[in-house]
């Protein structure tokens, strides 16, 4: 009888342990929403990240194209990892959502970026942007807030006379100026470097009318202190750049690695 009971006990521990271990991993998801980009490559992101994460601990990736839905998930969950922009994090923290930065994205060694307002050189100052179109990638609310910050208090009134054209990506915004569909573009400073590389003629035609404050590129945040499971998932995320497939996935998000804030 004792033998039967001990076999049963070992079997029970094995089964339930395996079950809970598998179950706990299924519950861990990386949620992603970034209002600083308007690129709709969610299917590609989901496939690429899921393929990687399932093989590195059975985790999953869930991108969002809607801010409300993303925020609703944060409100409902007690755990998990959230990838979001610095701008969005600040907005949520103001609403007392207890998100804390766990990792910050890096690109070519930098963790921060600033946005630039670029125009052709015949636009000498921001007051000339009245009744013009400014192109930018991201949510309308985000572009509006960046533009407001760059214009400053003195020129804030101009905002009501500027039309914002939302395009899928930074380089579309910059080329929209070059090809005459917009008078100005809001883009990351690094996107201007990219333009200089692939279309130096258009780059030379542009100049900058203003810059935003520097912000983190992308943030991996957790709700309060991460549970052991989230710590594990953060470690998987942090090490992604060490594998070719992981590095390529990070490039889809516009970063090349993660760094822990000191």
């Amino acid at each position: 009888m004792k033998r039967i009971l001990s076999v049963f006990f070992i079997f029970f521990v094995f089964i339930t342990g395996g079950y809970w271990s598998a179950y706990s991993n299924v519950g861990s998801i990386i949620y992603f929403y970034n209002p600083e980009t308007n690129i709709n490559n969610f299917a590609t992101l989901k496939t690429a990240f899921d393929t990687y994460l399932v093989n590195h601990g059975g985790y999953y990736f869930q991108p969002f194209d809607d801010r409300e839905n993303f925020e609703a998930v944060i409100q409902e969950k007690k755990g998990d990892i959230y990838l979001l922009s610095s701008w969005h994090l600040k907005a949520l923290q103001q609403k007392k959502v207890p998100l804390e930065i766990a990792l910050v994205g890096t690109s070519k060694g930098n963790t921060m970026q600033r946005k630039v307002l670029s125009t052709k050189k015949d636009i000498a100052n921001v007051s000339m942007l009245k009744n013009t179109v400014v192109a930018g990638a991201g949510s309308e609310e985000y572009i509006h807030s960046v533009l407001k910050q760059i214009l400053g208090k003195g020129q804030e009134a101009l905002l009501k006379d500027i039309k914002i054209l939302i395009v899928p990506k930074d380089i579309d915004a910059l080329m929209a100026v070059g090809f005459g569909m917009a008078t100005a573009a809001i883009s990351a400073e690094s996107s201007l470097d990219k333009l200089a590389m692939f279309n130096p003629n258009q780059f030379r035609e542009l100049h900058s009318l203003g810059f935003s404050e520097k912000d983190y590129l992308l943030i991996a945040a957790t709700l309060k202190k991460p549970e052991p499971q989230e710590v594990e998932l953060l470690e998987v995320l942090r090490k992604m750049s060490e594998a070719d497939a992981g590095g390529e996935n990070l490039k889809l998000l516009g970063i090349d690695g993660w760094r822990t804030l000191q």
């Binding site: 013009t132 939302i166 917009a182």
Partner: peptide
């Protein structure tokens, strides 16, 4: 979206140069 911006510019008679724009997004 680009057409809508163009429509609003036309409404204000503030259309930038050129009658037909190329698409701004790819």
């Amino acid at each position: 979206r680009q057409s809508a911006n163009l429509a609003m510019m036309m409404d204000k008679d503030k259309v930038p140069g050129g009658t037909v724009q190329v698409p701004a997004g790819s």
